[in-house]
């Protein structure tokens, strides 16, 4: 066998090895998706999305309150974490050399590493106990604490890439500092900031632990943010661990809805990054 042919065989072997190892990664993801879709698809229909959960044995159960509750929680989390997160990211970028900035950067890193269950306990102690009851607000605040580091990071990283010349251009026209920030710098980084926000939403949408003792769960529909609310992860947790097969089916259906939502956000994020 001549040497060139041997090298070509080795080369091919190595390529096959690379492709094979990469493909292994697809197996768990494929299996998860397969299980969830095959189990969940049978229960999903319009009624499932628009009816309330029912007691075990009653037909026509749905997850409407969990969808609305998740929407409420994510809305509260976004409304709190986006304005603060963008402001903090802007500060870190503008005053990056200050002591305050280094301290905040450290805090953001630590906050990102705090287990979600601990954030849940903190939210319980800070909000649930003083207010005297579980509520959507407390759950939203817990989720906001989890989203905040991602929004801050995304904002800072994005703004770092915006050329200094743009700020000079605006200030040089006699535009005050705050308008320069709000009308030039933040819009120039809007894509990156939005990407961070979407990734943050995708992350907190599936969080269960911080909601266990904050939003708590609720079998009924409510849009009152001072009341306990249901959410997709909570209904999955409660129903999947129940002994009733029809509730377990609902949990599969809710899982599929959640997965579709998160995957949709990821795809949206990817198209934003490409732009």
């Amino acid at each position: 066998m001549n040497r060139v042919a041997f090298r070509l065989v080795k080369d091919l072997g190595f390529r096959i090895y690379l492709v094979a190892s990469t493909s292994v990664l697809l197996i768990p993801l494929g299996l998860i998706l397969y299980y969830i879709v095959s189990n969940g698809i049978t229960v999903i229909n319009w009624d499932f999305l628009t009816s309330l959960p029912k007691p075990p044995g009653v037909l026509g159960a749905g997850i409407s309150n969990a969808i609305v509750g998740s929407g409420l929680l994510i809305g509260i989390a976004g409304a709190l974490s986006i304005p603060f997160g963008v402001a903090i990211g802007l500060f870190l970028n503008e005053f990056s050399e200050t002591h305050l900035a280094s301290a905040v950067r450290l805090c953001v890193e630590v906050l990102q590493g705090i287990p979600s269950i601990v954030i849940g306990i903190v939210a319980y102690l800070w909000i649930v106990v003083p207010l005297g009851g579980f509520s959507a607000v407390s759950g939203g605040i817990a989720l906001a604490l989890m989203m905040l580091p991602m929004v801050v990071r995304a904002t800072e990283e994005t703004l770092k890439l915006i050329p200094h010349s743009l700020k000079e251009a605006s200030l040089g026209l006699g535009v005050p500092y705050y308008r320069t920030m709000i009308k030039i710098i933040v819009p120039a980084g809007a894509n990156g900031i939005l990407t961070g926000v979407l990734l943050g939403v995708a992350r907190v949408a599936g969080e269960t632990a911080p909601l266990l003792f904050t939003a708590f769960g609720n079998p009924f529909m409510t849009v009152n943010i001072t009341q306990p609310v249901n959410s997709l992860p909570l209904i999955i947790y409660n129903f999947a661990t129940s002994p009733y097969p029809d509730w377990q089916q609902v949990a599969w259906g809710a899982s599929l809805v959640l997965i579709i939502f998160v995957l949709g956000l990821s795809l949206l994020t990817r198209t934003l990054i490409k732009r």
Binding site: P163, S165, A169, R179, I184
Partner: peptide, 24 residues
């Protein structure tokens, strides 16, 4: 400035009157 720095998110038209737009 040394390097041309038009506002990338604005049209040519808006760039010219950017000083007015941004100052409200």
């Amino acid at each position: 400035f040394q390097r041309p720095n038009p506002f990338p998110t604005m049209s040519i038209y808006d760039n010219v009157i950017a000083g007015y737009l941004l100052n409200g």
